[in-house]
Design a protein around this nucleic acid. Structure first.
Length: 849
RNA sequence: GGGUGUAUAGCUCAGUUGGUUAGAGCGUCACAUUGACAUUGUGAAGGUCUCUGGUUCGAGUCCAGAUACACCCACCA
């Protein structure tokens, strides 16, 4: 008999020590697990210098849930954790730190700057590691990786080298997205579009008028495009025209292209080859000169003539004023423009000419599309397939070089005298003196794309790689399907000719109660996972991140919700406390099923075991959690346990509890493990075997029978409540049916009544109750309010009549009889008979009042 | 411009391939309180399932259209 269990579950007192026991047990490591089948998840690596936010908490919970479930299924389960170097973000952070010391990165130089960054990461990496543990993550720390560690760097260099050899990586001079703030290129998907009010300026342009939202770029125009059939401009096609733009002289070539829309603007486009992607395409096609008028810092170049050295906006203002003075500015129009901005800093992206490294995607994307089309990779929810295909099909060559100092250096070298970097030498080994390495670094997503296999020791031929790749599930947010999921498929298909994972499970975003994205911009409604854990316990947080949500959908979270699951965790605690405290022997020798209640609970348990198993197999985590919540609180605690207070069955209580703990463990690992410890000191719930349903114990008849009993009790309680009968008063209930002793006792105890199996003297004032199976009446004596009772019955009769009318109509419809399945018709007929009988009973009752 | 999602009780959401009189939690109201649990128990009130058509014996569920909100993609100068 245990007496020393605290009344309320105190998560804070136990979580850390339980985590320590788990971690030290070695069972996070699949090497210590038995089983032939493997189950692998690569953890999406949080930023090495980051702080845990609610989004992390959500993915950690979902992944841990899967991992714990599969571990209990007896699979060799690997959850490989790690951190990401997050090039741009980390680079920026350290630059900021330097600035506080009054220094810039140029004072240090690239080598020392990187050393400084590494030092900073080392220092702050511990934070996120500890925070990942706080959520209960059962990942294998012995295999933890970091995107910049030696092995991963080797993988990056190897893939780069191979791609270069295969002609899939090339250096090209072309328009790229340039962020003047980050001073680096951006990939196409790192550019966001935001609608902004803008002005469209119409400029007189020799014989043409052209429209532009960026007048300053016109200083570098080298062409005018018109539609081949445009009568207005036909005569100019092929001519080279000198144009004076308020003193700035340009020479343009007029050419025809079907892409031009005659209706938009003036039908004539001033072509700025070096600062617009569309125009660049024109320039390539029609062989135009490309003049760069804006440089990497966002200032005008020498080619911009007298505007050289001015910032873009400044130059625009001055140029417009000059045009206006020269009467070349025809008109201005307001319109909304989708402005391209940097996804990281929000600065307007400057398209400009630059020599950069690219990945040729044409052949890769075909494979990546096939991988999903062929169903080798399954995306959950399915609708993201379409989004994935669309994106893949429109993918352009991927710019992978960044001018950020921190990141994977490319294995590219130049001779000391090749200052223009025209003749790259691609090899992993340093060619030694006389050479210098490319200072550009690689897009973070290049290394992230290798994550599923670079973390397993590839390119080495390791056991881990053989055993755990392809990984089983990739669980991540739908917001990085392009950045990351798509890249992993591309890279894995290229490097291994193999998919990186079999299933992609996409979760949604975590939002505040009013639907805002949880970010630092509205701290008032933001949930900090660490605060929530402190306040409500980790298990409560986990439940509220899982229940009420399904794949691909956003989740709203707020305090009351977490509080509710804290209450649930506490309920489970007290259920266990009750069972443990009232059980002298904690061993289950032989399970005996004696009563209807026993039959009911053991049957329901089998059902919940199989439904939970099915739901988890089908990634319906929310549903599984909700069903368990319901089973524990209502079926088990509210009904079964209450009944065992007068029909004890200690072994059954223990048995059901054990199973509940197992089923709930993947959702709420801490409290379940803590309770488990109370009666199995030397065993860990974490590696217990997942329950299997025993279909022989499923008893639908008993479940139905039990539901009728519940119905009777609820009706009696309802009546007591209506008549405000003192809770302690025992009332008399007459029943026409003779109940088995155990059933009779259940009604008597839970309805606080005494059952007499005889029909009451009609002179007694009674309230009569009935359901479709049993008729019974409650003697209320002087308490009865005839008028009230009549009204109640009348209401019930009215409702029933309405329902019967519908039912009769349905059954008299020959089409229904003919076309509906037979079992449905039969079912409806039974229903009709039952309800008619009930109606008659109710009417009799009313008459007798 | 192209695409996707969502719309069910005051709030947050379930509702599986169409088949009872549409469910839960929170909140609200009423009642209960020393023995697992007030982080509780018992009961109640609360819904034209956004709208309009259609398919069907039967639609919250399927189809079409509309409206509202959210999101993603996109190089119309």
């Amino acid at each position: 008999m245990k007496q020393d269990i605290p009344k309320a579950y105190n998560a804070q007192n136990v979580e850390d020590s339980i985590y320590k026991v788990w971690e030290e047990s070695g069972f996070f490591n699949p090497d210590n697990l038995k089983g032939d089948k493997t189950f692998t998840i690569s953890m999406p690596p949080p930023n090495a210098t980051g702080q845990l936010h609610i989004g992390h908490a959500m993915f950690l919970t979902l992944q841990d849930l899967m991992i714990r479930y599969h571990r209990m299924l007896g699979e060799k389960t690997l959850w490989l954790p790690g951190t990401d170097h997050a090039a741009i973000a980390t680079n920026a952070k350290v630059e900021k730190l330097l600035k506080e010391e009054g220094k810039t990165k140029y004072d240090l130089g690239q080598e020392k700057f990187i050393a400084r960054v590494q030092e900073y990461i080392k220092q702050s990496q511990g934070t996120i590691r500890q925070q990942i543990r706080k959520v209960g993550s059962s990942c294998d720390w012995s295999r933890e990786r970091y995107t910049m560690d030696e092995g991963l760097t080797k993988a990056v260099q190897t893939v780069f080298l191979n791609m270069y050899k295969d002609g899939l990586i090339y250096k090209g001079y072309r328009i790229v997205n340039w962020c003047p703030h980050c001073e680096s290129t951006l990939a196409d998907d790192e550019v966001e579009h935001k609608d902004q009010p803008a002005k469209l300026y119409y400029i007189k342009y020799g014989p043409f008028v052209v429209a532009t939202s960026r007048p300053e770029t016109k200083l570098g125009d080298t062409g005018v495009a018109v539609h081949p059939k445009d009568q207005r401009y036909k005569k100019y096609i092929g001519q080279i025209i000198n144009i004076d733009l308020a003193g700035h002289k340009i020479k343009i070539k007029v050419f025809a292209d079907k892409e031009v829309d005659q209706e938009f603007g003036t039908g004539a486009i001033g072509v700025t080859s070096a600062h617009s992607l569309v125009d660049f395409a024109f320039a390539e096609k029609h062989d135009l000169e490309k003049i760069q008028v804006i440089n990497e810092k966002g200032t005008m170049t020498k080619a911009a003539g007298k505007y050289a050295g001015q910032k873009v906006l400044e130059a625009r203002k001055n140029f417009l004023s000059d045009l206006s003075k020269a009467e070349l500015l025809v008109k201005e129009e307001d319109y909304t423009q989708a402005t391209a901005i940097c996804y990281r800093c929000g600065t307007a992206v400057e398209p400009l000419m630059s020599s950069q490294w690219f990945v040729k995607v044409e052949s890769l994307k075909k494979k990546a599309i096939t991988a999903v089309k062929s169903k080798k990779i399954k995306i959950i929810p399915e609708r993201f397939n379409k989004i994935y295909f669309q994106w893949m099909e429109n993918l352009h060559d991927w710019c992978i070089s960044r001018q950020i100092w921190f990141g994977h250096r490319m294995p590219v070298w130049y001779k000391k005298d090749d200052k223009e970097k025209n003749n790259p030498i691609v090899q992993i080994e340093d060619p030694g003196k006389g050479y210098f390495q490319e200072s550009d670094t690689l897009d973070t997503w290049f290394s992230s794309g290798l994550w599923t296999f670079s973390t397993l020791g590839w390119p080495g031929k390791t056991e881990d790689f053989k055993n755990f790749h392809p990984t089983t599930v990739m669980e991540t947010g739908y917001d990085i399907i392009f950045f990351w999921v798509a890249r992993m498929i591309l890279m894995s298909e290229y490097a291994l000719q193999e998919i990186p994972f079999k299933t992609v499970y996409l979760h949604g975003l975590v939002r505040t109660r009013d639907g805002k994205k949880m970010s630092k911009s509205h701290p008032e409604t933001c949930i900090d996972p660490l605060d929530a854990i402190k306040k409500y316990g980790c298990d409560a947080l986990r439940m509220s991140l899982v229940v009420g949500n399904s794949a691909g959908n956003d989740l709203k979270i707020y305090d009351e919700k977490i509080e509710n699951y804290r209450n649930f965790v506490n309920k489970l605690w007290n259920v266990s406390r009750y069972i443990l405290m009232s059980s002298e022997n904690l061993e289950i020798k032989e399970l005996s099923i004696n009563t209807l209640a026993d039959q009911f609970i053991i049957s329901r348990l089998q059902n919940i075991i199989s439904s939970t198993t099915n739901n988890l197999n089908n990634f319906n985590f929310g549903q599984a959690g909700e069903d368990l919540y319901d089973f524990v609180w209502h079926d088990f605690a509210d009904w079964y346990i209450e009944i065992t207070k007068f029909q004890p069955n200690k072994e059954m209580l223990l048995f059901v509890l054990e199973n509940i703990l197992k089923l709930l463990h993947p959702f709420i690992p801490f409290v379940t493990e803590e309770i488990w410890k109370q009666f199995k000191q030397d065993e860990l719930l974490m590696i217990e075997e997942w329950p299997k349903a025993n279909n022989k114990l499923i008893d639908n008849k008993a479940e139905k029978e039990f539901d009728f009993l519940k119905d009777i009790i609820i009706q009696i309680r309802n009546l007591r409540s209506q008549y405000k009968i003192e809770p302690k008063k025992i009332i008399t209930v007459y029943s026409r049916k003779k109940y088995a002793d155990d059933e009779k006792k259940i009604i008597e105890k839970l309805g606080r009544c005494e059952i007499k199996v005889e029909w009451p003297d009609s002179k007694n004032k009674t309230s009569e109750l009935a359901n479709s199976h049993y008729k019974f009446s409650v003697v209320l004596g002087d308490l009865i309010d005839t008028a009230k009772e009549k009204k109640r019955l009348q209401q019930e009769i009215d409702g029933l009549k309405k329902y019967l009318t519908g039912l009769e109509k349905r059954l008299s419809n020959t089409n229904f009889i003919k076309k509906a399945p037979k079992n449905i018709v039969a079912q409806e007929k039974i229903k009709l008979a039952e309800k008619q009988k009930l109606l008659k009973d109710l009417k009799d009752n009313l008459d007798s009042l």
